[in-house]
Amino acid sequence: MSTSTLAAKPLSKAAQPFWRDLRLGDHLFAAFVLLVAGIVFNRYHAAMDGYEQAILAGATLALIALGWFWKSVRVFFPVAGLLALGGIALYGGDLARGQSAFWLKYALASQSAAMWMCVLFFLATLVYWGGLLRRSATLEAIASGLTWAAAGAAVVWFFVRWYEGYLIGPDIGHVPVSNLYEVFILFCLITSLMYLYYEERFATRRMGAFVLLVVSAAVGFILWYTFDRQAHEIQPLIPALQSWWMKIHVPANFVGYGSFALAAMLGVAQLLVAKGWLASRLPAYETIGEVMYRAIAVGFLFFTIATILGAMWAADAWGGYWSWDPKETWALIVWLNYAAWLHVRLVKGWRGNVLAWWAVIGLLVTTFAFLGVNMFLAGLHSYGGL
């Protein structure tokens, strides 16, 4: 095929509206998502304010777009959603059934789903490494399947825990993104799904051994935080978090955090390839760099959105968009760090090890902004400490 033919293809696709490329499967998926959203709205709209109804509408459209863009989620989200609905139905409005109903106790209650998620992510990490070191496509496929299953368990945890909060009391229930235990599970879900997308997009499973390491580190924190601090117990929201802003600010933030963590682990992989270590087993040096760039670009976009949403939340709660609180200051440092990373790559044309090291160090900066500020620096956001 000639270069001119290759160049003409994108132009012909861009010349017609995107909906002309939609197939029957695309329309059926959209209809299914709209049907489920309609059922949710019909059942729960009385308990939802206008902002929550707008979030439901936005999430519905976003899921449809994601399903059109990434075909694999057409199976993943319906299956995980049905399992979550099964867990909710098994409760029958009685929280005590979580300790007596077999499937709730051992699989579908939120804490059971969280423990399954932890086990599956640990197993996926080990199997990814086995597949990488033995060059086994079978082990890599099994590891990918385990990662999908772990992400599915996280989705079940999310919706069942949300419901369990309302079973405790209408004033207790809230979207589970309010404390470190909840957001670390959200981090595992987002990071693993982002990795699975890139795994499919670049047709290689050999980056999973590195990316799943950071997910397993988060899982280790979740287990420690659960058994040492009993953090899995559902608590009422503190006044500072009783805002609908939390429901959009926190998830957007964690798309950013997940992207930056993924990029940092790929930076480690790229540096090893540059030294000749595992070079014959990992994807090409340039491929790893390209995935790292795309992850940081997505993360920067969502972190920017989250920062803007955080400023609007601050104005609503404290009367000002910016107060140079330590959390705000370090969020700005993180934003400037990745803005500079993208600038030198896109404008200056930098490539190679310097950007890989920058991505690795960037994760340390981001981790301090997320955890260290709350632990060591007093401010308006000090309620998020360990």
Rank of each mutant, 00 (worst) to 15 (best):
N253S: 15
H343L: 08
L237S: 03
F77V: 08
P176T: 01
Q111K: 13
R97W: 07
M312E: 14
I190D: 05
F18Y: 14
I296A: 05
T226D: 15
A356K: 00
W335K: 05
F29E: 06
K9M: 13
D21C: 10
A274I: 10
W224S: 12
L6R: 10
L82W: 08
H232M: 13
E233V: 01
G289T: 02
A143S: 03
I172Q: 06
L90C: 06
C118I: 06
A331S: 13
W358T: 01
W324P: 07
Y195I: 02
F184D: 13
E52M: 12
G385F: 15
A80K: 03
F300L: 12
R281P: 00
D171R: 10
R20Y: 12
G319L: 10
W103L: 15
A65C: 14
A143I: 00
L196F: 04
K247Y: 15
V36Q: 10
I305A: 08
Y106H: 14
E140A: 03
T125D: 09
V354P: 07
M265T: 01
A80Y: 01
L241C: 07
V175C: 09
M115G: 11
G320I: 14
G208E: 00
G267C: 06
F76I: 08
M265R: 00
M375Q: 14
T60C: 11
W244M: 15
G87S: 08
V33E: 08
T366Y: 05
A359G: 02
H45S: 14
M115N: 14
W68T: 06
W335Y: 04
G67S: 09
H249W: 04
A356H: 01
A331L: 12
V273D: 00
L28Q: 08
C188N: 10
W350F: 09
A314C: 09
S192Q: 05
V273T: 02
F260T: 02
G258I: 03
T204G: 05
T5H: 14
A217L: 15
L371Y: 11
H232S: 14
S382R: 12
I308T: 10
F221D: 10
Y285K: 08
F32C: 10
L364E: 08
V183Q: 06
A8H: 09
F121S: 02
D26G: 03
L56K: 02
A31V: 07
Y163V: 04
G362S: 03
L133W: 01
G130H: 00
Q230M: 14
F302G: 02
L108E: 07
L104H: 04
L126P: 00
L61Q: 09
F76Y: 09
T125L: 07
I55H: 10
S100D: 13
T367V: 13
F77K: 07
L272S: 03
E286C: 05
I305H: 05
V127Y: 00
A217T: 07
I296G: 02
L6P: 04
L377K: 02
G379R: 04
V373G: 02
V365D: 06
R20T: 11
S72E: 15
L272V: 01
W19S: 13
P170G: 13
F210Y: 03
A109N: 14
I333S: 09
S243D: 12
A109L: 13
M117H: 11
I222G: 04
F41R: 11
W19V: 12
W68A: 13
